[in-house]
């Protein structure tokens, strides 16, 4: 994706800057931005290391088991006919937990594993099954208990109260998630009627 977008951004910017006479601005921005990335990355580094550390602790305790138990009724509501497949169940649960804890790097491999297992149950191998769609929608909604990246951005730019955004983010994500799930459930039903 970025192999296409990135060059387009740069070429269009330079051409537009020449036409509109902003080339001096553009030239300055190159120096300013590279310096900004270094400052920004240093702040990001602190926050990311702290939370990776704390979440590693969480991963190695029974908190994961409690969360799995809490999620069980929700998962049974969202996904159909997977109760018998414990491997599939476990992968989906861990994928959701990793998302909630903000472990993006752990969440994707687990989600892909779950997709693999779901593909075994899938009747049409070139088409997403209902369960697969639900899994993808859950992953695009990204419910995260501590939005570390955004906190790091706010912190690096000198906010008075970097954490002020946590609760609003929860509300917005939960609304998006509920709507996403409802739309998916409804469309699954409509799709079946067509068949």
């Amino acid at each position: 994706m970025l192999n296409i977008l990135w060059p387009i951004f740069i070429i269009i910017s330079i051409i537009y800057a020449v036409i509109s006479g902003n080339i001096e601005n553009l030239n300055n921005s190159i120096f300013v931005e590279t310096e900004n990335v270094v400052k920004f990355s240093l702040t990001l580094l602190g926050m990311t290391c702290l939370w990776s550390g704390i979440m590693e602790v969480a991963l190695n305790t029974k908190i994961i088991d409690y969360l799995s138990k809490m999620l069980k009724p929700i998962i049974n509501f969202l996904f159909k006919d997977i109760e018998t497949d414990s491997e599939c169940n476990k992968n989906i649960t861990m994928n959701i937990i990793a998302n909630i804890l903000g472990l993006g790097n752990a969440a994707t491999p687990l989600g892909l594993k779950a997709m693999n297992v779901l593909q075994k149950h899938n009747k049409e191998k070139d088409t997403l099954s209902d369960n697969m769609i639900m899994l993808i929608v859950l992953n695009t909604a990204s419910l995260q208990i501590i939005p570390t990246t955004v906190l790091a951005i706010r912190n690096s730019l000198g906010s008075n109260e970097p954490t002020k955004i946590i609760f609003p983010i929860w509300l917005a994500t939960i609304c998006a998630l509920i709507v996403g799930i409802l739309v998916t459930k409804i469309l699954i039903k409509c799709d079946r009627r067509k068949l």
Binding site: S13, A17, S20, N25, V32, E33
Partner: peptide, 14 residues
């Protein structure tokens, strides 16, 4: 790569 590209997009007026 991206900060510089986005910075260029903004400073050029695009």
């Amino acid at each position: 790569g991206l900060f510089v590209a986005i910075g260029m997009l903004r400073s050029s007026g695009v």
